[in-house]
């Protein structure tokens, strides 16, 4: 078997598609964790974003109240709002009420899992498809051999996800807001002494994290799969949390981790499709095993935000 039968352009394109929800969710989680909030409810927020975004598109397309592009943008907006509200709820529980972040995150996850399933059963019933974000064809660029297929045949949300990587890095490393986030996550007492509101920053990052998690879910339900089913994310939110550790809380490295995980996943699918004689169990395990190995090495290089998971109260 020749290598070019395995490493095809479609495998790289597939990796980019698969990485999209991880990048959205993991970038959002990076903001939250850099400010000291561990949000394990990402998957629940993704599910709510996936369902509400889907439902907004489903209803507006079915009733013809909005044109298709507006309907899709409406779906994105709803997913952002719902994800943001769930992020706000997580912030209230973990920042204001100072609950254990791990436990409250799991609570938010279960809430999102259950509510998205309930609403789906009540409002939609059986899986139904919508017209999602179409693949964009760029003049000239999409026709470039190999590169065209890999980079220039994706839907809008894929490009938005990848565009958010440098934007997130810029915000975190080059802006005053980013400096406040890092200060709050690293040394909340010092940040507080400098006049930074620890609670306000953590509320903001957790809400941003929720919005991006909602968008991650919508990228599945109205861009990549174009339908909703119960537990659609299949645990992708938890992988996203792991990718933040993998990337050492740096947006570029987090995105690189998402790409590595997705590439190995795409590769194992291609290996099975072309009939290489590898037991399917090994192929299915491969993305997780390789990511864990990479995580072990990555974790030695990076130190997590000092105040991660620690509630802050002035004077304590």
């Amino acid at each position: 078997m020749e290598l070019d039968a395995i490493f095809t352009a479609s495998v790289f394109a597939s990796a980019i598609r698969l990485a999209t929800p991880y990048i959205f969710a993991a970038l959002g989680e990076t903001f939250a964790q850099r400010s000291g909030v561990l949000n394990l409810g990402v998957d629940g927020m993704m599910l709510m974003g996936a369902f509400t975004g889907f439902y907004a598109v489903f209803i507006t397309q079915q009733e013809g109240t909005l044109s298709e592009p507006l309907s899709l943008l409406f779906g994105v907006l709803i997913a952002l709002i719902v994800g943001g509200l769930m992020g706000l709820a997580m912030a209230f529980v973990s920042v204001t009420l100072q609950a254990k972040q791990g436990i409250s995150g799991i609570g938010v996850y279960l809430f999102g899992l259950g509510l998205s399933e309930l609403l789906f059963q009540q409002w939609v019933g059986t899986p139904k498809s919508v017209s999602g974000f179409p693949r964009i064809t760029f003049p000239i660029l999409s026709d470039i051999p190999v590169l065209g297929e890999i980079f220039f045949h994706h839907n809008l949300l894929v490009y938005v996800a990848f565009a958010l990587v440098p934007i997130s890095a810029f915000v975190l490393n080059r802006t005053t807001f980013g400096l406040m986030i890092r200060a709050v996550g690293q040394n909340p007492e010092a940040a507080d002494a400098m006049g930074v509101s620890v609670a306000r920053v953590r509320y903001a990052t957790t809400t941003i994290g929720g919005m991006l998690a909602g968008l991650a879910g919508a990228s599945l339900s109205i861009a990549l799969i174009n339908l909703f089913q119960q537990n659609l994310t299949a645990g992708q939110g938890f992988i996203a949390v792991a990718l933040v550790y993998f990337g050492g809380w740096r947006p570029w490295a987090v995105a690189a981790g998402a790409m590595l995980f997705s590439f190995v996943n795409a590769l194992q699918l291609q290996i099975k499709v072309i009939g290489l004689d590898i037991p399917s169990e090994f192929a299915v395990m491969a993305p997780y095993v390789i990511t864990i190995i990479a995580l072990v090495f990555a974790s030695k290089r990076q130190e997590q935000p000092t105040a991660l998971t620690k509630p802050y109260e002035r004077g304590e």
Partner: peptide, 18 residues
Amino acid sequence: VFIGSFSDVPLATEAAET
């Protein structure tokens, strides 16, 4: 392609795309 899951819709979708 057996994707190793009964419920992983995103991975099943990508398997179909592959």
